[in-house]
């Protein structure tokens, strides 16, 4: 499937993945994240159950300390 991940086109072999699976495939390693699927907020407890499909716009934004 083809998705937009953080504004970049990505092709992932397969039809449907959960948000957690995509995080594992793309090795997102930070603990604090904001996840938005098609501009909708996905909460931590929804990472396993939320499915990402062909054409979706996924943003996984790291939050790191500093300010």
């Amino acid at each position: 499937m083809k998705i937009m991940l953080n504004n970049r086109a990505e092709t992932i072999e397969g039809d449907v993945f959960s948000v957690s699976q995509i995080m594992a495939i793309k090795s997102f390693k930070f603990r604090m994240l904001v996840v938005r699927l098609n501009d909708r907020l996905i909460k931590k407890e929804e990472y396993e159950t939320t499915l990402v499909k062909d054409g979706d716009d996924l943003k996984i934004i790291h939050l790191v300390s500093g300010g």
Partner: peptide, 15 residues
């Protein structure tokens, strides 16, 4: 993403 804007490099954590 929608009404959210995040400024920075998204990586370099202060410590």
């Amino acid at each position: 993403s929608g009404n959210l804007y995040v400024c920075g490099d998204g990586e370099r954590e202060a410590g």
